[in-house]
Design a protein around this nucleic acid. Structure first.
Lengths: 213, 213
DNA sequence: AGACTGTTGTTACCGCAAGTAACGCACTGC
DNA sequence: GCAGTGCGTTACTTGCGGTAACAACAGTCT
């Protein structure tokens, strides 16, 4: 049985991917609070192996997260970069995101509510070192696209970053609420949010029978 | 030592408030992952008393959360209801929120990342029963104000709810990012976000030297 | 062949936090 | 004097993250 260094490396990587897939199954079934024991059992092994591969639970979860995050980000980038008018791009992006969270709510909950790990409270020197949760990555990504594509004057970079994170947050919160109580179709939600970004709040008139006037 | 039923009730309530204040101090010092032991110690008592008063850790955290949530919501309502033009109201609301999270980041982290409790995964019958996290409450509140004040046509209620949650999410995400890396002054951030809501994204032109064109 | 090294896996443990059971103590009403 | 009822304790169970120590085996050096 020949076993050179390279084939060893690839074997280890295959193993790692198997473990990740097992973890994925468990998280999909049990939600984000799946225990390391449960994941190890699903993979047919025991805990220490997980720890050798991923260091700690945060490491495993981070590895899991980047898989899904990368997939989602790829979809979003495609929507953002398509050569159509800006409004259409925005709608496509919103729809891509909402489709993703609608299709796999468990994955979504895992990515968005990762039980906020990290936090070495004594020193505080590396807060947010390698956490980079999905929301921040998406915010930065969007900021970059905005800064590249839209002309926003002298402070454009700053504006783009604020807007990137703001829009992502809007998408996230609205999506979260919409996923819970499906109050309307996805297409409608997309329209409503795009309308909001298109300044319809500023354009709308005061309510006729408003209270207090 | 006279101790009638009424004075007992008020005594118990005073006790509860003392416990909450102690918990508050600990959470402010240790962050959201403060242990029940630590809280009990700070209050000068032991764990079971906490459990008698609040049921479980979630109960305590919920009680703590409503205190701060109510205070913040009161401030936001005041900003939302002031009789000035809409843009000014929006800016005041944003500024109120950002001031709050800037003044007490620990409280903010506690409220926003409550280690997502609840989740009785077996039955699922009361998911979200009394969690009502701050974000959702704020979203509903804002939705109500929008629906009352702004004329949005036939589907106005639905629109208002989408916008309420969306705007709150935008505020939250942008605030979170801004709190980490202070990239600009609070006033600037408020301006940028208000500009976003006022449709400046739709109004801005394409970047001159854009890539790919 | 036989000692050396590294990877893969195990069992058995530590520490710690949530939550609980069982008891001690004061004080009230009868 | 004595049952009842809050307030408080100590001491425990359970479960999870994380680790130490050991067992088995593949390939390598001499």
């Amino acid at each position: 049985m020949e076993m050179t260094q390279e084939s060893r490396r690839t074997a280890s990587e295959r193993r790692r991917r198997e473990l990740l897939e097992a973890a994925d199954r468990v998280v999909l079934r049990d939600g984000p609070e799946a225990s390391m024991n449960a994941i190890a059992a699903e993979a047919g092994i025991t805990k220490p192996i997980l720890y050798r591969h991923f260091g700690d639970k945060g490491g495993l979860y981070r590895a899991l997260a980047v898989r899904h995050t990368d997939a989602l980000l790829a979809g979003l980038r495609a929507a953002l970069d398509s050569p159509v008018p800006r409004r259409d791009r925005v709608e496509a992006t919103l729809d891509t995101y909402l489709s993703a969270i609608e299709a796999r709510p468990q994955v979504y909950r895992f990515l968005m509510h990762p039980s906020d790990e990290g936090q070495t409270p004594d020193s505080g020197f590396d807060v947010g070192r390698h956490s980079a949760p999905l929301l921040r990555r998406m915010g930065e990504e969007l900021a970059q696209v905005i800064a590249e594509r839209v002309d926003l004057g002298p402070v454009g970079d700053e504006l783009a970053r604020v807007w990137g994170h703001g829009i992502v947050g809007m998408m996230h919160a609205a999506g979260d609420w919409w996923l819970r109580e499906q109050p309307c179709s996805r297409a409608q939600l997309v329209q409503h949010l795009a309308d909001l970004l298109w300044g319809r709040l500023a354009a709308a008139g005061d309510r006729p029978g408003g209270p207090g006037f």
